[in-house]
Amino acid sequence: MTIDPALFSAALRALTPILFAALAGALCQRAGIFNISLEGTMLVGCFAGVAGSWFTGNPWLGVALAVAASAAFSLVLAVGSVSLGGDAIVISVAMNLLAVGLTAFLLRTVFGAQGSFSDPELRGLDRVRLPLVEEIPLLGPVLSGHSPLVYVSWLAVAVTAVLLYRCRWGLRLRGLGENPAAAASLGVRVTRQRYLVVVAGGGLCGLGGAQLALGNVTLFAENMTAGRGWIAVVAVMLGAAAPVGVFLAALLFGLAEALGFRLQGLGLPQQATDAAPYVVTLIALFVSSRRLRRRDPVEGAVDR
């Protein structure tokens, strides 16, 4: 087996859905919301993307529908947890199941299909060739020739970083996650900010879903996110909810997945490579556990 540009190119493709979801998770984390509904929200995006592209014939309208549907879906978390004070974890777990049921239900009622839907007529996102970048030796083939959403995801990392660390909006968000009562007392509209973040996160998950269903492949299959949303949750932890950190964590999983496929070609059973990203994730968590180790249960008492 060789380490070649194609491997990294595959890694970048694989990481994109995770990256979108992880950015969403990072924003929510900064606002003090532990969002584990990324998996289901992304799945809704997958379905809406395929449905949008199928019925309009335009994959970009599919992307738009994916963003709208996922953002709408994430309103469940916003209303349930932010406004009404429900347990975000319970709501998120139920949302993930709701997404599985809902997309399977719609798959049957809308497409009359069971298990999965694909059709030669279904249009995915075209690959983009970057004129000059393409020419760069080694790097060119890695960076060029992806679906446009891959580049959008990089842009999203940069925009999120600027928003968080340079803008008033980000400063207020970072503060509000640390001490919501203080933020409110200083005139920040906590509920509104959190709504915005959860719904914007939903939109990002929609982009991730669209990339998965219209970029990486061109089909919808039940439960096709297959744990990517959970890996995104872990990426948020590993990357300390910082955009660039989250990107690096997602890259790790992208590489694991791409390597897995490669190894499969060399005769390793598919099941071993299926498991690879999760094992890599766990190991990465162990390695960084010192940082993640939860605080002494009493330390909080001492602090306050």
């Binding site: 349930g80 429900g86 319970v90 139920a94």
Partner: peptide, 12 residues
């Protein structure tokens, strides 16, 4: 799933 969501919300 809806039952659980409504439940968690109203428990809040």
């Amino acid at each position: 799933a809806l039952v659980i969501i409504v439940l968690a919300t109203s428990t809040g």
